[in-house]
Simulated assay, not measured.
Amino acid sequence: MTAPDAHRPSPTESLRSAGTDPLILVVGVHLVLVDDAAVLLGRRRNTAYANGMWHLPSGHMSPGERVTASMTREAEEELGIRIAEADLELVHTLHHLDADDDRSRLQLFFRPTRYDGLVRNAEPHKCHALRWWPLDGLPGTTVPYTVHALAEIGRGRCLSTVGWAA
């Protein structure tokens, strides 16, 4: 039994002592565009992460931004398409421990129910090419957690983890 005057660590203090800090959780947003069993991927260029690899159109939340606003902003910046926030469906959440920097990342995967405009490579300085790939034939140079998330979405699973000890 704990004495009434004993200091009990707050949940945040307990997390910090365990080596994690919820205040620095990185949130990534990913757009899953599927057409005829093919998914749109971009080949990354001039990027610090996964340069030269295929990945879903994606980005990070900015401070003070709603997660859905973040996804619509990224879709317009990268693909030149407009998506209403209400037209985004969250199809998967991945809690990812990044082996490169040991940071905890929450990766959110959205599918639009509709969008306006024609898909185009609006950031050629960051994306070498856009291409539709069969879901059962992704290139070997696809970002591994992207492959994982797409497989989980195909199984109808809405939550998974990658990089954490079993």
Rank of each mutant, 00 (worst) to 15 (best):
M1K: 12
T2I: 14
P9E: 06
S10C: 05
P11N: 11
S17I: 02
T20F: 13
V26L: 08
V27G: 07
V29W: 07
L31F: 00
L31S: 06
A37R: 14
R43A: 09
R45Q: 06
A48I: 09
Y49H: 15
A50C: 08
A50I: 00
G52K: 03
M53C: 04
W54I: 02
S62R: 15
S62Y: 13
P63H: 06
R66W: 11
A75H: 01
E76Q: 13
E78L: 04
E78I: 04
L79W: 01
L79Y: 01
I81S: 06
R82W: 10
I83R: 01
I83N: 01
D87C: 03
L90W: 05
L97F: 12
D100L: 14
F110L: 02
P112K: 03
R114T: 11
Y115Q: 00
P124S: 06
P124C: 06
C127A: 07
H128L: 12
A129G: 06
L130P: 02
L130M: 06
P134D: 07
P139Y: 00
G140W: 07
G140R: 10
V143S: 05
P144Y: 12
Y145C: 11
T146E: 09
H148A: 10
A149Q: 06
L150C: 07
E152N: 09
G154D: 03
R155H: 15
G156A: 04
C158T: 15
L159E: 14
L159T: 13
S160E: 09
G163R: 08
A165P: 10
A166K: 13
